[in-house]
Amino acid sequence: MKKTGIVFLLLILAFLLVWPFIGPEYQVYLTLSFFAYSVALLGFNLLFNYTGLLSFGHALFIGVGGYTAAFLTSRFHIPYMEVSILVTILLSGVVAILIGLICVRYIKIYFAMLTLAFGMLFHSFLMKTYHLTGGDEGMSVEQPYLLGMDFSSMDQMAFFSGPYYYYSLGVLILASIAMWRIVHSPFGLCLTSIRDNPDKAEYLGIGIRKYRLLAFIISGCFTGVGGVLLAPITGHMDPGMVFWTHSGDMVFMTLVGGFSNFFGPMLGTVIFITLRDVISSYIEYWRLIFGALLAAIVILSPGGVIEVLTNLFTLIRRKIMAGENAS
């Protein structure tokens, strides 16, 4: 990573560390969603940008994570966040293997349609098995213990601005490091070769189905963990979380932020959450604005907002250096 990139990241990290102390309470609360979705999108984008597979059903894995948290905390009274995360990784992996074995045989539009279908299948499953999952009424998610510590005596908003905030940030940092290593590993390179030219990759000895399946599994696990982080924020899980439009939100965030940059989807999450919060209070047609924004990005800057920002930054730096040279 370039030096300027590292400096920038450290600045953002420093800001995030002090944000609960300087930011308004509600905006700090919204940041929790940003952490959770960022982890989820790390998984989604491994599949999209690095493997070239667009999943329109990834909210399924958010559901796996969220409902795992719901079952463990409110049904089985196991409140430990770490248990929820580990069980989710396991379950997401199993689900990803089962679905992936079918889906990775197909690419492009067929892959997208299949993942959408599986996502909606899971939605139907949650609605129908109402004796188990509460159906449309959903399930409660109790406040988890973090690192074994019980914070239930704490005021809810203090919990969200304090322990849960830093815990989520920690999970995001760990997840980012793990995913960074994966995409910069030999495995990551092989994935991109399959993305770019599967036939050629096969001729170089890369078993494309095997790699796609493994990418799908890793992707599902990361998104599942995102779901576990998301669930306690609402305190409730319902089938709406796995409806295909929620998968669409994830695609939107990734595209708007910029999928070809590792941090693009995270920027997309910030934009999505902030815009929706600001716009939906004033205009009931906020979805129209979002559609127009997406169209503008696709037409004017397909690399997303992060590309616009990096180009701007490069331009400014060049001007500064030109100015220095002139003087």
Binding site: Y26, G235, M237, G240
Partner: peptide, 17 residues
Amino acid sequence: ESKAKDTVEKFKKLTIK
């Protein structure tokens, strides 16, 4: 009002913000 997560968020917004 929309899905549960967003609805709770907006409820909090009306209360806290």
